Amino acid sequence: MTERPLDLDAVWAFILIADHGSFTRAADAMRTTQAAISLKLKRLEERLGCRLVERTPRHVQLSARGLAFLEHARSLRAVHDRALTALSGARQRLTIGISEHVAGPELPALIARMNAQDPHLLMEIRIGSSGDLLRSYDRRELDAAIVRLHAGREDGEIIAEERFGWFAAPGWQHRADEPLPVATLAEPCGVRALAGQVLDAAGIAWTEIFVGGGVPAVVAAVTAGLGVAALAPRMLPLGAVDVGDRLGLPPLPRLPILIHSRMAEGRPRDALATLSAAFRSAVRG
């Protein structure tokens, strides 16, 4: 009697649990529920006759047998993808635009991991302002755009909502008799516009002390002690501090990250789901 084959969806769920260290994040990547992920893993463990994942209230880790099976699981997934590619021909291409205020320091490692997971999907990444990326998306120059909330649009799926604060170098002091020096991105940056609106509404005089060509440049200006910047905590190097309360600056609202996509199925959709889950994980910390 031939043994029952492995369920490829269950194998993929196991790989995602291993990569994300979380059932919730694996469910996000597969666009399903945590209960469905748990059931897939349970059936895979029953089929293999061993426990693959050790669960505790604080974390998820692979068992010794889970670690041993992971390499085989990745190989099985790769063979599956190669078989599909052999029939479909050329590599699939996915062009993604990511807002400068969304693409954090973890992006290069994340893209490298995604390329390793699916070498038959060619991903092109474009970084820019949310407004510019959405215009490119509407012109069908991008397959997907991951951006901040853009005024006047109600489409897109919210991935997460991220905290922003007023950050400066440790020990930086503001001269009370001078406008608040602010480091920003160039227009048309939505975060720049929001920060200005919040300061104006609070009656706080401010001036642009540094206008950078990207978030890393703004971070460098903050680190150098030029002034303050409205940034998400994950963008900052160790040592930068939130000075909002100390300076009496108005709080900044949590800003959503949204994905706009016309990819409904297949490898591109799976890759976007994994990318969305990774950003959701980064925002949660």
Rank of each mutant, 00 (worst) to 15 (best):
A201V: 03
L52K: 02
L70W: 01
H59T: 11
R65K: 14
Q34A: 11
I15A: 07
M114V: 02
R267G: 08
M1Q: 13
E162P: 00
L149A: 14
P250K: 03
G131M: 06
I17D: 11
G203I: 05
P251I: 03
A278V: 01
A73F: 05
L16N: 09
L272P: 08
L199Q: 08
E71M: 01
A29T: 00
C189P: 00
D28G: 13
F279H: 10
H72M: 12
I158D: 12
L149V: 10
I37Y: 09
R139E: 11
Q34F: 00
I158E: 15
P119Q: 01
I127G: 05
L6P: 00
V215H: 07
T184N: 06
A220R: 13
D143Q: 11
H80G: 04
P188D: 09
F69P: 05
M123S: 11
M1E: 13
S99R: 07
G156S: 07
P268S: 07
F164A: 06
W12P: 00
D19V: 02
L122E: 15
R175E: 15
P105F: 10
G285D: 08
V11L: 11
S63C: 12
A29K: 11
I17A: 07
G190D: 04
R267F: 05
V147H: 03
L252N: 05
A224V: 04
T33I: 03
A112T: 08
E141N: 05
L67N: 15
E157L: 15
A109H: 07
I259L: 12
D242M: 02
R234C: 01
A83C: 09
P57D: 04
E162I: 02
G239H: 06
R58P: 00
A282R: 15
E178L: 12
L76D: 05
T56A: 14
R234I: 03
G285M: 06
A112W: 03
G239L: 08
T95N: 07
A278Y: 11
I159L: 15
I96M: 00
T207Q: 14
P108V: 04
W172M: 09
S99C: 12
V243K: 04
L149E: 15
L76I: 00
L231M: 02
V191N: 01
R262H: 09
I111R: 01
R280Y: 06
T85V: 09
P237L: 10
L16P: 00
D245C: 07
S130M: 11
R269Q: 14
A186M: 10
I259N: 02
P179M: 08
A78S: 10
V211Y: 08
R58M: 13
I259H: 03
I98R: 09
R192P: 03
A278E: 13
